[in-house]
Each structure stands twice: as structure tokens, then as C-alpha cells.
């Protein structure tokens, strides 16, 4: 029991007759980075908003470190840090002022707020911009500030909603580094994303979520092992057909065979995208 950071059971959410969540269940272990991976409209944000008490669930239970959302709302809120999908910083205030207000919201003493602010600015490489107004920061810096703001009160569970959406590749990498660093410092992380590469790179475990349902969950490595680590894409007139192989020799043999018939064949490593395509063709 004490090994579980977050337990979500049969969570449902209905927005005026349209179901957004149809009873999803998953658990996140302490220290783990767990991802909800799915397309737009799958219900990822809804799930996080329920966990942060921003939205009321229609049914089901959420336990955060064994505490119920409804019964111990304040205790639960204090242990959670939330990084929303849309940047909701105070644009007219400075970086430090944004962090100060957050610290006060979580009842931190001023001295601690000061200390933590400098620590986090260091980690996010924002020290020189500490007294700049947020509206003067670039998109990537705003995103980093958004993340460290959620860390001000040292939450045990960090919720990240699509943390790299709309960022350029270099900045995405920086954010990924920051996220891994946060996990390594002992924080449990629940992340949502629609980027397959992001989920594969960062997650200990992944749940595929589509139309309010989790259709499969496992570690990226297990998913890939089950399907086969090697994929052979054969381009035909009607599209691509992909074959999966558990070992490299078989894959290379197949590659040779197919190359004699066609020029458009590639051998590559299997990614989560393959898993997604496989899972959804079965589910559609």
C-alpha cells in the first residue's frame, strides 16, 4: 500500500451527456514516471483536472498516497504539484513574484520560499531572469517556470499535462532533461502526452488512452518485446504493411527476401507508435 503514490479506480466523467472518461483505472508507484499517452480529446486533461480537484468526477475513486480526494482534499492538494497544459502564469508579475505567490498559496514560510526559489531558478537555468516579467520570457522559459512553480512546495506527486507541446526540438530536450532530473530527485510523476517518442523516452510505464478508455498499459520495453523489437516496413501500392520480428536474424532474412521483389523496404527498431497502431487497429 505504501508503495503506491496514486490509485485511480473506475474513474468516469460525463460532460453534459457526452462521456469523456468511461471508467479508467491505473496505479502509479512511488518514484515512477507513468504516462497517459493518447490523441487529442482522449481524456488526459480531464483525468489530471479531476486529480487536482479542478473538475468533479462523475464516478470512481482517486487515492493519493492512500488519501481520498473527497475526504482529505487539503492534504491531497498539498502533496500534488500540477503543471497545466496551457501556461497560466501571471504575465505582468516577475518570475520571482510568481513563485512567491505559489509558495504563499501552499502556506510556506517566507524564508523557505526564498531558499526554494533560488534553488529552483538554478535548476531551471532561470537565475538571470528572476526579476524579469513573465511576459518578456520566451515560450520555452515560460514552460520551465511553469514546471518549477509546481515544484515550489516540494510535492511528492507531480502531474505534467503535455509539457512539451508546441516547443521546438532543442527546448523539448531541455524539458525532458528537467523532467528526468525531477524524477531522480524522488518525485513521482504522472505525465500526459500525445507524442509517442516522448512517452517512450521518459516513461517507466505507459497507458494508452483513447476516447476515455485505457486500452493497454505496460512498460515501453515490455510492449516492444511482446510485439518484437524489429519492424520491416514494406511499401506497397495500397500503403505500408509492417511485419514484426523478435530477433534481428529473422528480420534481416525477411529484408533480403523482400528486397528482391521491391525496392521500398526498410528495417528499423519498433517504437511505441507501432504498438499504438497495432492496438488501435484491433480496437477500431
Amino acid at each position: 500500500m505504501s508503495e503506491i503514490a496514486l490509485e485511480v479506480r473506475n474513474l468516469t466523467k460525463i460532460y453534459s451527456n457526452t462521456p469523456a472518461l468511461k471508467g479508467i483505472s491505473f496505479t502509479v508507484k512511488k518514484g515512477e514516471l507513468f504516462s497517459l499517452l493518447g490523441p487529442n480529446g482522449a481524456g488526459k486533461t480531464t483525468t489530471l483536472r479531476i486529480i487536482t480537484s479542478l473538475t468533479k468526477a462523475s464516478g470512481g475513486t482517486v487515492l493519493v498516497f492512500g488519501k481520498s480526494l473527497n475526504e482529505d482534499e487539503k492534504i491531497v492538494k498539498r502533496r500534488i504539484g500540477f503543471v497545466p497544459q496551457h501556461i497560466n502564469l501571471d504575465m505582468e508579475l516577475t518570475v520571482r513574484e510568481n513563485l512567491l505567490i505559489h509558495g504563499l498559496l501552499y502556506g510556506m514560510p517566507l524564508r523557505e520560499i526564498k531558499k526554494r526559489t533560488e534553488e529552483l531558478l538554478e535548476i531551471a537555468e532561470l537565475k538571470e531572469r528572476g526579476n524579469s516579467k513573465v511576459k518578456e520570457l520566451s515560450g520555452g522559459l515560460k514552460r520551465r517556470l511553469l514546471i518549477i512553480r509546481a515544484l515550489m512546495h516540494s510535492p511528492a506527486l507531480l502531474l505534467l499535462d503535455e509539457p512539451t507541446v508546441g516547443l521546438d526540438p532543442h527546448i523539448r530536450r531541455k524539458i525532458w532533461g528537467l523532467i528526468k532530473q525531477i524524477q531522480n530527485s524522488g518525485t513521482t510523476i504522472l505525465l500526459t502526452t500525445h507524442y509517442m517518442d516522448e512517452a517512450e523516452l521518459l516513461s517507466d510505464r505507459v497507458a494508452f488512452i483513447i476516447s476515455g478508455e485505457i486500452i493497454a498499459q505496460d512498460s515501453p520495453l515490455n510492449f516492444i518485446k511482446k510485439l518484437g523489437e524489429y519492424a520491416l516496413d514494406i511499401f506497397t501500392d495500397t500503403g505500408i504493411s509492417t511485419h514484426y520480428f523478435k530477433n534481428k536474424e529473422d528480420a534481416e532474412k525477411a529484408l533480403q527476401t523482400h528486397t528482391t521483389y521491391s525496392n521500398h523496404v526498410t528495417l528499423r527498431k519498433v517504437t511505441l507508435e507501432d504498438i499504438f497502431v497495432k492496438l488501435t487497429e484491433r480496437h477500431l
Binding site: L54, K77, N88, L89, D90, Y106
Partner: peptide, 13 residues
């Protein structure tokens, strides 16, 4: 507009 209010709603105040 800013949605900062949500930051307040999700905090233990």
C-alpha cells in the same frame, strides 16, 4: 484569460 485562478483552485487554500 490568464487562468491563474485555477492555480488558486488547485491549491490548499
Amino acid at each position: 484569460y490568464l487562468k491563474v485562478f485555477e492555480e488558486f483552485q488547485s491549491s490548499p487554500i
